[in-house]
Simulated scan of single mutants.
Amino acid sequence: MEYTHKSSPSPRKFKIVASARKVLLTLFLKQGNTVNSERYISKLRKLSVGLKRVRPTKHAILHPDNARLHTSRQTEEALHKVNFVELPHPSYSPDLAPSDFYLFPKLKEHLRGNHFASDEDVEAAVRHWFRQ
């Protein structure tokens, strides 16, 4: 907001440049499966192959949390091999909680009031929302 005299020319508006597009990766697991370092590395390798096919000139930046499987030596070596850049995550930062991203409130709004019979129904609803 700017205070000006009535006869003053209107202030110039600067062109707003859209920020870089961001993509959030979410993995769904079958009920009863746990994520360990080997499974996480396997998913990273598959993701790397897919990204090279779709975006060959772009690099991926991962922002994992401090879970043990994200910080293990094997995971760090795998990240280096697939050429992912890892954005370090501070030990504790409420400002960077994953639930605070703009995406989750909109997704919650879409799912609010629905009752799902199974995990597969929830997964299908989320995928449908992403495609829209």
Rank of each mutant, 00 (worst) to 15 (best):
V82K: 03
N83E: 15
L25R: 13
A97D: 13
L111S: 03
G113D: 06
R127E: 05
F130N: 12
S8P: 02
L87I: 04
V126D: 04
S37E: 13
N66S: 10
D95P: 02
P11W: 05
H59L: 14
Q74L: 15
L62R: 09
V122F: 00
S118D: 12
H5Y: 13
R53G: 03
E109M: 08
A20Y: 11
L87D: 11
P88V: 00
G32A: 03
G113L: 01
T75C: 08
V122I: 11
Y40T: 04
N33W: 01
T26Y: 00
K81T: 14
S72T: 07
Y92V: 01
S8E: 12
D65G: 05
R45Q: 12
R131P: 00
N66E: 07
P90F: 01
L87A: 10
L96S: 05
S8Y: 12
S99Y: 04
L96Q: 13
A124V: 03
P9K: 15
L96G: 00
M1Y: 09
P9W: 06
P9S: 11
H89C: 01
Y40L: 06
S19Y: 08
T4I: 15
R131Q: 12
T4C: 08
I16M: 13
R112Q: 10
T75K: 08
R73M: 08
F130W: 09
S10I: 04
V82N: 05
S93V: 06
N83G: 06
L79Q: 13
T34F: 01
S93Y: 04
N66V: 02
L27I: 10
Q31G: 03
A20N: 14
L27K: 13
Y40W: 07
D121P: 02
P88G: 01
V122S: 00
A117H: 13
S72K: 05
V17F: 03
H89Y: 10
P11G: 03
R21A: 13
L25Q: 11
K46M: 07
M1W: 09
A67S: 05
P90A: 02
I41M: 09
W129G: 00
D121G: 03
P9N: 05
Y102D: 09
L103D: 02
S42M: 04
S37A: 10
T75R: 10
L79S: 04
E77D: 09
P98N: 09
V17P: 00
S91R: 08
L107G: 00
L96Y: 03
F130A: 15
P64R: 09
S93M: 07
T71H: 02
A18K: 15
H5G: 01
S48A: 15
V85C: 07
Q31K: 15
L87M: 15
H128C: 05
D65L: 01
V122M: 02
N83H: 14
P98H: 07
S91H: 06
N33L: 02
R39V: 10
T34S: 11
I16T: 15
N66Y: 08
R53C: 06
N66A: 06
E123D: 08
T4M: 10
S10M: 11
V49W: 08
L27N: 08
A124C: 02
N33Q: 08
N66M: 07
Q74W: 14
V126Y: 09
R39L: 14
L69F: 11
F84S: 11
R112S: 06
K15M: 11
A117V: 04
N36E: 11
A124L: 05
K6L: 12
S93C: 12
I16H: 14
S72V: 07
